[in-house]
């Protein structure tokens, strides 16, 4: 009875993990720029891989194989986040321009410093203590001091 339940639970986990993993791979192909692609891949690398390993873990049980699976998923989770962070930072410093939706709603590529300022403005205006004058002053400041890209 318990074994049957574990088998069905493992099937469910494997199915859900497969779906999430394929969704992440599709996002890797269809997203517009590198940062959104990273966002899509992170779905597959956390939820997809997590559910797949959980499904295998339910089959393996508390054995040496199960311990190895736990170590694999822990290593994947830690190294995946660190590698993604380094990749995003290197891309920003290399001058890759993030594609953002402007005020008109059109997708345009903009400079990295400008993108960071836009995101900061968004966060500031969503908080109740927003001040429109300082908002605008901050925006013009960063526009003057844009970091030049390496290329």
């Amino acid at each position: 009875m318990i074994e049957l339940l574990l088998t069905y639970l493992s099937w469910g986990c494997l199915g859900v993990g497969s779906v999430f993993y394929v969704i992440g791979a599709i996002g890797l192909n269809r997203m517009p720029d590198i940062f959104t692609r990273m966002h899509a891949v992170s779905v597959g690398d956390t939820l997809g891989a997590g559910f797949l390993v959980l499904g295998m873990l339910l089959v393996a049980g508390p054995t040496l194989v199960g311990a190895k699976l736990v170590m694999i998923i822990l290593a994947l989770l830690f190294t995946g986040t660190v590698a993604t962070h380094a990749l995003a930072r290197a891309a920003l410093q290399d001058g890759v321009q993030p594609v953002l939706a402007g005020k008109s709603g059109k997708l345009t590529a903009c400079d990295a410093a400008e993108a960071v300022q836009t995101l900061k403005d968004l966060v500031r205006t969503s908080t109740p203590k927003a001040d429109k004058d300082s908002d605008r002053a901050g925006h013009t400041n960063t526009k003057g001091g844009q970091r030049s890209s390496k290329r």
Binding site: Y21, V22, A25, I34, R37, V41, G44, G80, T84
Partner: peptide, 29 residues
């Protein structure tokens, strides 16, 4: 089979990727 499909899609991105970082992300995947 799902993992194989995902691998194929990642390889497609690695060959198409406009910047080196796209290829690197696909290689990591």
């Amino acid at each position: 089979i799902a993992v194989l499909i995902a691998l194929t899609l990642a390889v497609i991105r690695a060959t198409r990727g406009p910047t080196i970082f796209d290829r690197l992300l696909a290689a990591n995947s």
